[in-house]
């Protein structure tokens, strides 16, 4: 039953990735202007060589099939602006950095959000609830890049007040380089998830089965984890897919501001320099990555909620 469910999701994912790749390809080829125009003047010979190298001399349909074929083989081509650098290498080199940051951010958002939401729900209408909800509204209304900038400003003030480097302002390296950007990156999602888990937890708290469990003498930690949290997590898990997407794109900005050598920063640079292959490669890569995440979330939702698993298996 479960296998069928998983296969179904995987097939859906594959089709979506193909669609993303196709859309990317045609979007990029609809760009007005000449992809090879750069500052330097080019002799016709050099130009012809470059065209041959990037396959630009072939008809569009052939380019498309080459592109899709290469994609299937996991080959994204060569960068336009950083010559001789393969897009695969760029991804391989910089994605782990983004992933580290993203995983840290997701972890912070998930744990913080669920915790804050649960606390707010348990103290409904009292000051912890009001505090959490106020922070949620504040965090949702402020763009990520502003939070990033402010965080940097605070770090600078902190460092100058302490007259030593308490926290690094930017860059990449040790643990201290990770957690501030990760917090900044996760903050919006954290706020969103706390609102969500607060609502879910409120519903759980007013449910019969919590009352029944308490009437059976279940209390404290086991009541919270086994009964309340487990049921309140369901709606949160469904939102993890969008949350990962938000953190991925949010990462572009945070990596830019904190000067972190992640894939997001390279993507933004590529966009600004119109580096076609890098844009296409990273877009498809990110698209595929997000699809994989969505499929994983679907599957894990099936694991948590037995109703989904069984109904999907039966249908």
């Amino acid at each position: 039953m479960m296998i069928k469910f998983v296969l179904h999701r995987l097939l859906w994912g594959a089709i979506t990735v193909w669609f993303i790749a196709t859309a990317t390809f045609f979007a990029m080829h609809a760009v007005p202007g000449d992809p090879l125009i750069q500052d330097k003047a080019m002799s016709p010979v050099v130009r012809a060589q470059l065209e041959a190298r990037y396959g630009l001399d072939k008809p569009l349909s052939q380019q498309y099939f080459t592109f899709i074929g290469n994609m299937i083989n996991g080959d994204f081509g060569i960068s336009f602006t950083q010559e001789n650098r393969r897009v695969n290498d760029i991804i391989r080199e910089h994605f782990p950095v983004s992933a580290t940051l993203g995983i840290a951010a997701i972890a912070i958002a998930l744990v913080g959000g669920v915790l804050a939401g649960s606390i707010a729900a348990h103290y409904r209408g009292q000051w912890p609830d009001k505090l959490v909800m106020f922070m949620v509204v504040a965090a949702i209304s402020v763009p990520g890049f502003v939070i990033a900038g402010l965080a940097q400003l605070i770090i600078v003030k902190l460092n100058s007040a302490a007259e030593s480097t308490v926290l690094p302002v930017a860059g990449w390296g040790g643990v201290n380089h990770v957690w501030v950007p990760a917090l900044v990156l996760g903050l919006g999602t954290l706020a969103y998830l706390s609102r969500l888990s607060r609502a879910a937890m409120l519903e759980v708290l007013s449910s019969d089965y919590i009352l029944a469990a308490r009437a059976r003498g279940i209390s404290g930690v086991s009541l919270f984890f086994r009964y309340q949290l487990r049921n309140a997590l369901l709606p949160v898990v469904t939102e993890l897919g969008p949350a990962v997407a938000a953190i991925t794109t949010g990462g572009f900005v945070v990596e830019l501001i904190f000067a972190i050598p992640g894939l997001g920063r390279y993507f933004v640079q590529a966009v600004q320099q119109l580096d076609y292959t890098v844009i296409m490669g990273t877009t498809v890569f990110y698209g595929a990555f997000l699809v994989v995440i969505v499929v994983l979330v679907d599957i894990s939702y099936g694991l948590i909620d037995p109703r989904i698993r069984l109904s999907a298996g039966r249908s």
Partner: peptide, 20 residues
């Protein structure tokens, strides 16, 4: 609770945690 006093609820469909 549960040890000396126990209770049976009106609606069994909603009185058990659906995820366990």
């Amino acid at each position: 609770r549960g040890r000396r006093i126990a209770m049976i609820f009106q609606n069994p469909m909603t009185a058990l945690s659906p995820t366990r």
